[in-house]
Simulated scan of single mutants.
Amino acid sequence: MPKDVKIDLILHRDASNCMVHSARTDFNVALAPSTTQIDVEQLANTRTRIEASLSGGEKLKPADLEAIGVLLSRVLFAGPVRQIYDAASHGSAVQLSLCITDPGLKSIPWEFLIWPDLKVAPHFARSICRLVTSTPSRPLQNLNLNGGIRIILVVSQPSDQPSVEWIETQNTMKTLIAATTPQLDAKAMEFMVCEASDSSRVREAVQAFDPHIVHFIGHGAPNALIFAKHGSQKSHPLSAAQVHNVLSSKSTRLVVLSACDTANVGSDIAPLIPIAERMVQAGVPAIVANQMPVSLRSIHSFCGALYGELLKSGNIDRAVNAGRIAMGVAFDNIGVAAVEWGVPVLYRRSGCGQLFTTRVKK
């Protein structure tokens, strides 16, 4: 894979309600031209159309999804910002990071953009994440995959919620870990499953195991995850602050939330800071969540590719991108757009793309 070039895009709205954004690399900076001609409502409508297609409404055709991606691309890579992108992407892989605080601009599904030079998305040499402003913290200490990592799978199934299929994801994770771990180093990667009865038991398990990666499978909402209520098997929503205390420990570098709407920011009328973003603000370096409802089939396809790349390169931006590509292939139906691939969202702190260093072969 070619060398990664990092581009930060800062998006906000000015006093006249126009979108203003700039691009920054290690070598250059650019300000986009006036955006008075951009209809933010039209951009927001792209989300409505995609959600409808995912939830049983009118199915988007490939041409429809491509038109949405081209529109998002035209807005992001306008004027001098496009010049920055073209210069950076020439012969290189691009890691695009979006810095957004405006709720309306956050709600736009930028992950569906079509890369302007390649005319396709997703693509193995392009990735996109959302940077989160958080309390300044020390850079991640070096953690080599050869030294081993700990992964915990947390499954939450309250009796009054639809059941979740998690065995396939567990088997995929076990297979990938076994394939990545040399026989002579069998304990290099430790894996455990925690079937949640209630949040207190999950917290005890997480704190005792102190995992580097936490993967949650269950039901969620933009501002909560669903666990069983203490002393009962009925559902009980936990707020973002509570979830952070339950699912993270001192060594946690990545949390994967295989639950619907955990990256949904709501609307201009009722803006939300999604649970994924709040967990990064609270200190978790990176969170992978879903900005819309997802199917079990998409979760399995995405997770297999995500862990396959992460356990090879240690880079979460590349890993999420690999998951998106796998979803696009799995849902490649004739005449119907493969929409699911743009649903996962990567939230992370600046400088935390490389969660682990590359494994050294013996």
Rank of each mutant, 00 (worst) to 15 (best):
S89T: 07
K361F: 12
Q183W: 08
D14Y: 12
V40M: 08
S137Y: 01
D14S: 10
K119S: 12
E340G: 08
S232Q: 09
L72V: 01
Q281P: 06
A196R: 04
N171C: 07
M189D: 07
G69N: 05
E41D: 13
L54G: 02
R278D: 09
A188N: 12
T172M: 10
V284D: 02
F227N: 10
W166H: 10
D210N: 15
P109A: 06
S235Y: 04
A196E: 10
C303P: 02
I325C: 07
R348P: 05
F77A: 01
M19R: 13
S127V: 01
D210M: 07
A319H: 08
Y347G: 06
N264S: 11
Q170C: 09
V132E: 02
C260Q: 02
R318Y: 04
C129Y: 05
R126Q: 14
M292R: 13
N223S: 13
E168P: 06
P62W: 02
T48K: 13
Q183A: 11
I152G: 00
I84Y: 01
H300G: 04
P222W: 10
V214S: 13
G147T: 08
Q42E: 15
I84P: 05
I325W: 05
V40T: 12
G328C: 06
R278C: 10
M173F: 07
D117P: 00
L118V: 09
W110Y: 03
I217G: 06
V343R: 09
I7C: 07
F112P: 04
R201N: 11
H90C: 11
D185F: 15
S137G: 11
I7W: 03
Q291C: 05
L143N: 14
T172V: 14
S239C: 09
S134H: 14
L247N: 06
